Simulated assay, not measured.
Amino acid sequence: MRISILAVVVSTLFFLPVSPAHAADKAKPAPKRNLEKPVSITIYAAGDIADCKRKSPLESMAARTAELIATGLAKDSTARVVTLGDNTYPIGKPEEFNKCYEPTWGRFKDKTLPSPGNHDYGMPKALGYYNYFGELAGPDRRGYYATQLGKWLLLSLNSNVDKNQMQEQLTWLKAELANNKQNCTLAFWHHPVYSSGGHGNNKNMQEAWTMLAAAKADIVLTSHDHNYERFAPLDANGDRDDKNGILSFIVGTGGAKLTPMFLPKGATAVRDNSAHGVLKLDLHDKSYEWEFLPIPDQSFADKGKRICH
């Protein structure tokens, strides 16, 4: 009798119907985990760099700012270096690159994303600059190119070209921005559109700035004025726009003699002309951090963080 009762119980349990909800749960695939790791890339940037007119290369300020970068690269081999023009002085001769830039910032040439300045164009067609950097300077010696680092699009532009070349560059820039699939965008060139330094505002790149603002680019780096200046985020017209504006930096502190500044602009956030150094940028998937690194015996500092648009 006990055996028959047990058989009935087992039989009943075996043939119990499965509820539709329970069946759906069993059929539902497990949620996919996002296994893609966040990517962070560090870059070190400055312009107005190698000047050996009065000092030997290894005693120059370019050697001291290069040491800051070399220390960073020793800790992180994936980091990159950005030059913001006027790579050598006074006129960008090949020997200036070979004898002054090479022993200093040339130590990490293979990790460098360069851009040209007006002193680089002191030689016809910037011969010294393009001969030295070769393919690193972009295709066809035009001085502009695009690079992807992590989740960032980096655009190196040329602010030294004539009207026709500028239109070609703007056409290229428009296409790059239209096809951009990255989370964040950084552009860099030599002449700042907005500056309170000795050279002041420069409208040569105004159209490029307008395109970048319309595309909600995040950062613009320039030099030309031999100082450091960070502006509040600016819109296409140079008006403050904390939500959608471009955060711009002037980093003309790579080694050349520092120069006087005019009165600060209304949107000037921080500025200094007492310290040589480089700007360190940590580029995360959807945000970034910045920090100005002065050479060891100088004390100016500026740091912060911001989310990409």
Rank of each mutant, 00 (worst) to 15 (best):
A7T: 13
T12A: 15
F15T: 15
P17T: 02
S19R: 09
A21L: 15
D25M: 15
K26F: 12
K32T: 09
N34E: 09
E36C: 06
K37I: 03
K37W: 08
P38E: 06
V39N: 13
I41G: 01
I43M: 00
A46D: 06
G47I: 01
D48I: 02
D48T: 01
E67P: 06
L73C: 01
A74I: 06
S77I: 14
R80P: 00
V82S: 03
G85F: 00
N87G: 00
P94I: 02
N98W: 01
Y101A: 05
Y101H: 08
F108E: 04
D110E: 15
K111W: 06
P114W: 07
P116D: 08
M123V: 06
M123A: 05
K125M: 12
L127K: 12
E135C: 01
Y144T: 01
Y144R: 10
Y144L: 02
Q148I: 09
L149T: 02
G150T: 03
K151I: 00
K151P: 01
W152C: 05
L155M: 05
L155P: 04
S156F: 12
N158S: 09
V161N: 11
K163E: 15
Q169G: 00
T171R: 12
W172R: 01
L173N: 09
L173D: 11
N180K: 07
N180P: 08
N183K: 14
C184E: 10
T185F: 07
L186R: 08
H191L: 10
S196Q: 00
K203R: 15
T210N: 10
M211C: 10
M211T: 04
A214I: 08
A215Q: 08
A217L: 03
V220C: 06
L221T: 00
T222A: 10
F231L: 15
D235Y: 06
N237C: 07
R240P: 07
R240Q: 13
K243Q: 13
N244I: 07
L247R: 15
I250G: 06
V251I: 13
K257F: 02
P260I: 06
M261R: 15
T268C: 14
A269M: 14
V270R: 10
D272L: 03
D272M: 01
N273R: 14
S274Q: 15
S274P: 11
A275I: 08
G277A: 06
G277R: 05
L281R: 02
L283Q: 07
H284T: 09
Y288T: 01
S299W: 13
K305F: 07
K305Q: 07
C308F: 04
